[in-house]
Design a binder for these strands. Structure first.
Lengths: 344, 344
DNA sequence: ATGAAAGCGCTAACAA
DNA sequence: TTGTTAGCGCTTTCAT
């Protein structure tokens, strides 16, 4: 039941040296057609495949990318993970998952663990980082890219949506819809996405001579969002917003449920709701949520590109912050201005 | 920028042999308190951590579990993945993800790739396997466990819900609710989950002297389910079912959207809808879906246990099929029999 | 183009 | 308890 086939066994069977076998399985190596053929035959007969780990040891390249993700509850992350994994697979890499839950200790510990696996790169999804550990990675020559988070610490690449622009688009849309009292339900306040979306939203309102009427904090959680919604909307009509931007779709959907089923309000007749992300449930007919799309495909592509560049030119690539503009997707959860039409 | 700290460097600094260092970092090894202390100090100063890959090479244990997953669109899988990853992390293992998409070729290729990484075990989520590759894994001494799929091929472990029992519960519930015309929208017909759920449902109907009134196939996809729903329900009242069991929640939600927003039918007044899984969206107020809960925590725990047993006693453990019973969760998407109450 | 030889960083006998 | 010695399976000079 142990049939570990090694390159040496293949070599013997093919009547060549072990290094010849290695060369046959090494893309840019020099081998004659004849030896290559002999080796391939022997390998096939024995069912030989190179041991990735052994290769990693000597070459220093494991073809493993570590992915740290805090929680998969928000639909945006599973779909991003799926795309990321697929994109990396096409490049011959695979994703080693590290959940950054409370049980797993803090991020720094998780990062140490990742480094133990000699990963070629690290993607941090919705996770911020101490500058301390950042330098450990740089010292180890392992590129790190933040996904859907940015950070002021400079020497670290980050791929996000243009959250500021997105927030502004939402503000403009609501203003055009002749809303009067603007509500905002924030995500976790430590997150750059949260800060940027709010900043953009406020800027958009300000540009139209408007201001926030009410503000709550949902921490990017369903329960947090529901509580915030209850506090914000369980009051007389003129004491509550007539529209609300909820910092992501995951929360926005929970807010819609509270408005409709707990408070008996109609969306969008009584309250317009808009979100951010355009996760699959946003397009479900029961929600039909107006939102700003995060272009996950582009974000993933940028992430992979950044990773690959850094892996191929260690230490030669400047860290870069990419912010990808995403379109406003107009659906039915918010009153549609007369000059606009549905777009999704 | 390269600071690969090796055990040898630590050894020199601590004034001990390299193997002493190794022992300090090997759980059950024998080292004196004094050396251990010296080594720990030196290691801390140098920032040394053992190289998991090197350890894997010589020990034969990589502490990596390969996970093959077909698609993350169905919410059940992300949440299962999160739980699985967490559970394995607690055991000192990590998950290497392989997407079994169309682009990545067929499952057999993916399996080969996994084996290249010298994984200690493999979890196949909603994926079936050729018996050919199964034996390759057995030959390599790598335990495989099917998650949320079962297979007649015997020598392979599988963890599922008790889908037959679940299907029957749903049938009984609908019968008690005095429904007359029973519809069923199937998942992908190659899946054991689909077959078992349908078998249980039919058995439950038969036991009450009832039979299926209409049947469609949704293939576990949103579009497939919507089409099936349109064909089944876009017709006069007495020519369509008054209730429908959709083979999983993911599809059931899509079906509800079609019924309500395309066909103008009320749920549950015109049609009762029930699903299977109890994914998060099933409990959202807009759907409030009656369903059978898959106890993901238990399923994951069984999966991890099975894996660990097989890893610790290679070839000594009999493959086992575990089917976990899940409760009926009564919500509002289906008429509630007078002898029942909401349970979720 | 090919083989011989030297490790990659570590664990696991084996002695001492 | 400790150090010495073999490798794990592979890539990569270095000769040839």
């Amino acid at each position: 039941m142990k049939e570990k086939v090694t390159s040496l066994q293949v070599a013997e069977r093919a009547g060549v040296s072990q290094s010849a076998v290695s060369r046959v399985f090494t893309p840019g190596a020099s081998v004659s057609k004849r030896t290559a053929e002999k080796v391939r035959v022997a390998a096939a007969e024995l069912g030989y495949r190179p041991n990735v780990l052994a290769r990693a040891m000597v070459s220093g390249k494991s073809r493993i990318i570590g992915l740290v993700v805090a929680y998969l509850e928000n639909y945006f992350y599973p779909s991003a993970l799926e795309k990321l994994s697929n994109a990396l697979q096409e490049q011959g890499y695979h994703v080693l998952v590290f959940m950054a839950s409370q049980t797993a200790g803090n991020i720094d510990d998780v990062m140490e663990e990742i480094l133990d696996y000699q990963v070629d790169g690290i993607v941090l999804a919705s996770v911020a980082l101490s500058s301390d550990i950042t330098s450990r990675c740089q010292a180890a020559g392992v590129p790190v890219v933040l996904f859907n988070r940015s950070q002021d610490i400079d020497h670290i690449s980050a791929v996000t949506s243009d959250n500021v622009a997105g927030g502004r688009k939402l503000a403009e849309f609501l203003v055009e819809g002749r809303h009067r009292r603007f509500g905002y339900i924030a995500g976790w306040e430590g997150a750059s996405t949260q800060r940027d979306r709010e900043a953009g939203f406020r800027a958009g309102l300000a540009a139209a001579g408007q201001d926030l009427f009410a503000r709550g904090v949902g921490d990017f959680t369903v329960d947090g969002a529901k509580d915030a919604a209850r506090r914000m909307f369980d009051r007389p009509e003129d004491a509550r917003p007539d529209c609300v931007f909820v910092a992501n779709d995951h929360m926005a959907i929970a807010v819609m449920d509270v408005l409709r089923f707990e408070l008996g309000l109609s969306v969008p007749e009584d309250v317009s709701v808009v979100g951010f992300d355009d996760v699959p449930p946003a397009s479900w007919a029961a929600y039909d949520l107006t939102t700003v799309r995060q272009r996950a495909n582009l974000m993933v592509a940028e992430t992979v590109t950044t990773l690959m560049e850094n892996i191929e030119n260690p230490g030669m690539v400047e860290p870069r912050k990419v912010a990808i503009d995403g379109p406003l997707v107009v659906r039915g959860s918010a009153r549609i201005p007369t000059n606009r039409t549905r777009t999704g």
